[in-house]
Simulated assay, not measured.
Amino acid sequence: MKLTHKERIELHGFNNLTKSLSFNMYDICFTRTKEEREAYLNYIDEQYSAERLTQILKDVADIIGAHVLNIASQDFEPAGASVTLLVSEAPVEHAPSEYFEESPGPVVENVVLQLDKSHVTVHTYPEYHPDEGISTFRADIDVSTCGEISPLKALNHLIRSFETDVMIIDYRVRGFTRNKDGYKLFIDHDISSIQNYIPEDIAEQFDMIDVNVYQEHIFHTKCKLREFDLNNYLFGYTKDKLTPDEHIEITERIKLEMDEIFYGKNIVE
């Protein structure tokens, strides 16, 4: 059943459906020495500090229309950060009809809807290969809401907030709510794929696959960058400093790292 601005489901009490978005992004870098690896990790710590992550999550709260009740944030040694926002119900106002359609959400826009018992979290995980060569940064973001709007509307902003080579996105609707006649509703909006919430200019940059269980309201999408400029994966120098053989070798190592993350298995044992 699709919700529109003019026609909404009339509920008996509060909308008790829980909608959960898990967004995992991976950024890959080639670091051939210990010094390059340490410089990359320092860059990541500055780029994605607890302070900046807090602002990203505050923007998400704006998009899903939530009051922030509490913020817990922490930078870690030697690397990484975590932020948790506890958010609560906000006053209900009329929202544009596109907020209930299967389409990308805004980047940052204040739209106030009904929410309760909700949270937004992010945890970061920098890591590296023991023999040098590849360093990987992962950020896990969870947005869980109770109310009308889907947290998938925050996906557009989240993708644009991170440098992403591989994205793993999960969405699930849990529980049920009731209409005014007592009829149980286990989902209150149409969804065929998470891909429909990814803007076209971003989607065209990625290869994407879906694994969906429609009858259980479980949706899973994986995205891998199609093409890349090697300069974006070198730290402290550019590709013109490489020999042709080095250019090929590093490119293949980066592609292999992306493929193994995307497919969830070691391709080279």
Rank of each mutant, 00 (worst) to 15 (best):
D165Q: 11
R32H: 10
E7V: 09
Y43C: 07
N266T: 03
E93H: 10
D116M: 13
H119K: 11
I134M: 01
F235Y: 12
V173E: 04
E51Q: 12
P96R: 03
G13A: 07
L53S: 05
L21V: 09
I261E: 08
V92H: 06
I63S: 03
I250G: 05
L3V: 10
K58G: 05
V87F: 01
N110L: 06
P78F: 01
D188L: 07
S193V: 05
V60D: 01
V60G: 01
N156I: 10
A139H: 00
I209W: 06
V83Y: 00
Q55W: 10
E51D: 14
L152I: 05
V92G: 07
E204V: 15
I134V: 01
E200N: 12
V92N: 06
H129N: 15
G80D: 02
N15R: 00
E216Q: 15
L256A: 08
H123D: 11
N196Q: 09
Q114P: 09
D201P: 10
I194G: 06
E216R: 14
T84K: 07
V268F: 02
D140A: 13
L113P: 07
Y233L: 06
M25W: 06
R32V: 00
D190K: 12
L113T: 15
K239P: 09
T177M: 01
D59C: 04
L230W: 00
T84E: 09
L3D: 13
K58S: 11
D181S: 15
F235C: 08
A72M: 08
G264M: 08
H67K: 14
L21C: 08
Q114V: 09
L41E: 15
Y233N: 07
I159V: 13
V60R: 01
L230H: 00
V68G: 01
H247E: 11
K34V: 10
Q195T: 12
T18G: 07
F14Q: 13
M208Y: 01
P151D: 02
V120K: 03
K6C: 07
V107I: 13
D165A: 04
D229Q: 02
Y125L: 11
I267Q: 08
L69V: 05
V68E: 01
G182P: 08
V122I: 15
E77W: 02
R253Q: 15
T251Q: 08
N70H: 14
I134D: 00
S118W: 02
L86F: 14
E36R: 08
A79D: 12
Q47L: 06
P91G: 14
P199W: 14
L17E: 06
T221Y: 00
D181M: 13
I56C: 02
E98L: 11
M25Y: 09
Y171D: 05
S20N: 10
V87W: 04
N156E: 04
D188H: 10
H189S: 10
S20H: 09
N212L: 02
P78N: 02
V83M: 00
I187A: 12
F186L: 04
H220S: 13
Y171K: 00
